[in-house]
């Protein structure tokens, strides 16, 4: 299991508030990792830093076999490198159909002229159909995604994430607002993905995390509090203190 992403010594401050404080973390490929932590622990900020939305004050984020620094790259470059992100709240393009949404996300050349002059790859339609099958939206392909239910939007979002074929998936609270059956489906899907790539799941729901059966990292006040199996971290006294309050 080779290291795919290494975050080391990263700190970021907002107006004097240390959102991330000397955080270090590394993910292999393939690997599934769950990140938990109370509100304000810095989970979202960490994902912002990895995806290039926020520039940290110090530290390094190294990526891939060549150990390239992600910090100098734009968001789009990082995404092209193979990091996909699913937001907590589904952000699909509501004015466009499900098919168009998936087509947008599909791994293809991203340059403006390439997109304009050669908009479609030969296998695009098949890939979209397969994805739609996977996320259960085959019948909704031509509907505007704004008309989908909340759960369906979550699925579409996951579908878009898979369509990018990233090497690292950053998934923010995938199970929020899902029925138990859908949760099971999501778990399966993520586990399957984690067989070939790296997956980082940020979650509140301990039950869901337990079902992922993976290494867990606990964040608190912008740094790693504990790391290990779910049973290991839940028996850690510090983690209990943080979650239950002293």
């Amino acid at each position: 299991m080779a290291t795919l992403l290494e975050v080391s010594g990263v700190s970021v401050t907002f107006d004097g508030f240390k959102a991330i404080n000397n955080l270090s973390l590394s993910i292999g490929e393939p690997e599934m990792r769950a990140i938990i932590g109370p509100n304000g622990a810095g989970k979202t900020t960490m994902m912002d830093i990895i995806t290039g939305k926020t520039k940290p004050d110090e530290g390094r984020v190294l990526w891939g076999e060549m150990s390239r620094n992600l910090l100098g790259m734009s968001e789009s470059r990082i995404a092209q490198e193979g990091i996909g992100r699913k937001f907590q709240r589904p952000t699909v393009f509501e004015a466009q159909s499900v098919r168009e949404n998936l087509q947008l996300a599909l791994k293809n050349r991203r340059g403006a002229f390439a997109v304009w002059l050669r908009p479609k790859g030969p296998t695009d339609d098949e890939r979209i159909d397969a994805l739609a099958e996977e996320i259960g939206l085959t019948d909704e392909l031509e509907r505007p995604s704004g008309e989908l239910s909340h759960g369906q939007k979550q699925w579409l979002e996951i579908g878009m994430l898979l369509a990018q074929e990233p090497r690292l998936l950053l998934v923010d609270e995938p199970a929020a607002g899902m029925t138990p059956a859908e949760r099971q489906h999501t778990t399966d899907l993520l586990k399957r993905a984690a067989q070939t790539r790296a997956v980082i799941v940020v979650e509140h729901d301990m039950e869901f995390v337990r079902r992922l059966e993976c290494k867990v990292t606990v964040l608190h006040e912008g740094r790693v509090l504990a790391e290990g199996s779910i049973d290991h971290v839940t028996s850690n006294q510090e983690v209990i203190d943080v979650y239950l309050g002293r």
């Binding site: 393009f93 947008l104 908009p119």
Partner: peptide, 27 residues
């Protein structure tokens, strides 16, 4: 087609388009 799709997506949520790997500024 896809160009229009990207352009409209930029109009609606350009940050999201960036995370999909499109260089929004070029478009």
């Amino acid at each position: 087609g896809k160009m229009g799709s990207v352009i409209r997506a930029i109009r609606d949520d350009e940050a999201r388009v960036r995370f999909l790997g499109y260089h929004v500024e070029s478009y």
